[in-house]
Design a binder for these strands. Structure first.
Lengths: 206, 206
DNA sequence: CAAAGAGCTGAGTTATTGCTCACAATACTG
DNA sequence: CAGTATTGTGAGCAATAACTCAGCTCTTTG
């Protein structure tokens, strides 16, 4: 492994469609390879092989291995970002309906490739910059949920911010677990329990 | 990195106290090094250095790097296992008290070295055997909690097994998160919310 | 106290992997 | 179609890290 901090030369920017396709093939292959082998064992040569591309080509579009993972991560985050329209859409209905929508949202976010997400979050040591992006995304999401809860009449909790944080994290990790586990519990059943837990919590029953 | 599956020669078993001490020093150093550098960058040479032991000695007691982590993991699990006495001790009291005890237990389990636990669980790719041990431990724990809930009069949930699973996982991961995050939320506050959530869920209020 | 064995050493071997670079192939342009 | 720019190739370099082994020191034992 070469020294980590070396001057990273600027990469060529694709000008022809061919090049753009190559880039995409590399990313697709990387997703597959990381999923199958994990981050450490998902070598750049393996990725290149899988993409039917030479290792040299790979390094023409990505300055290093981490950059590939970073791009996958950024794309995932972008896909998962709520638009304001989505947010409004969640407002009406009973508390349970709202919570269920939240859970469904988390499930959708994991649908593509739960294994890959796990690897991205857990296995690879991401750059500080990327971690910051994820952090910001998380904070924004907690904020959205907090606002959502604030607008709902049935919510009775002490600290709304903390409740939002607790909920987002709990829903996220539980979904993550059920989706990532091959021999998983049926999602529907688990979803019901999760929804029940969160709903009862928010309702603040004594 | 040498090929993963090679004949692993039997290691020397310590016969003198001196040897036992060396083994312990290696394990202690490994815990420190893994915590500070992570698993991948926590090299065997670094561990040996930190333990003031030659790399050769290290390999006299552990067949490979993973075995070191495995031993740390097994020890952690053993420490965290409930005895029957512990179990009985948890029975009496209000539901909230019981839940709080559960949460406290998780906190205690993370107290030693939350970073290390994170590394063990997330970063390293553990052997199937070790994963099975962890799995068995998890199942046993869920079983213990299920029995605990079954004995409590205030618990009203549909599927007790699933409830136990949901609770154990939720308490575990939330605790894990708060403990591992350096700029963490005050544990007490978070604990209260977590306890509230789980308690309200179990009480099954409508 | 001397022989035997247990424990310890660390330079060196083996293997892997991220990544470069000199060159070849392909696409664009006038 | 010649000349230029872009894209693609893959052997091999350099770095790194897991692990070995020949020979040493320390402990035990008779």
């Amino acid at each position: 492994m070469p020294s980590a901090d070396r001057r990273i030369p600027a990469r060529r920017k694709p000008r022809q469609v061919r090049a753009e396709l190559t880039r995409e093939r590399i990313l697709t292959a990387a997703a597959h390879v990381f999923t199958e082998y994990g981050y450490a064992a998902g070598t750049t040569n393996r990725i290149a092989d899988h993409a039917h591309v030479s290792i040299g080509s790979l390094y023409q579009y990505f300055p290093n291995k981490e950059a590939i993972l970073a791009e996958l991560m950024v794309r995932h985050i972008d896909r998962g970002m709520w638009t304001e329209a989505d947010e409004l859409e969640l407002t009406p209905g009973s508390l349970e309906t709202t919570v269920r929508a939240l859970v469904r949202d988390a499930v959708d976010n994991h649908r593509d490739d739960p294994q890959l997400l796990r690897i991205m979050l857990e296995e690879a040591s991401l750059s500080q910059e990327l971690l910051d992006t994820i952090e910001r995304h998380g904070k924004k999401r907690v904020g959205q949920v907090r606002d959502l809860l604030a607008r709902h009449p049935d919510v009775h909790v002490g600290d709304l911010g903390m409740a939002a944080e607790l909920i987002v994290f709990t829903v996220e990790t539980n979904t993550h677990k059920v989706m990532a586990d091959p021999r998983a519990i049926p999602i529907e059943t688990f979803e019901d329990e999760l929804v029940a837990m969160v709903t009862r919590y928010l309702r603040g029953d004594r």
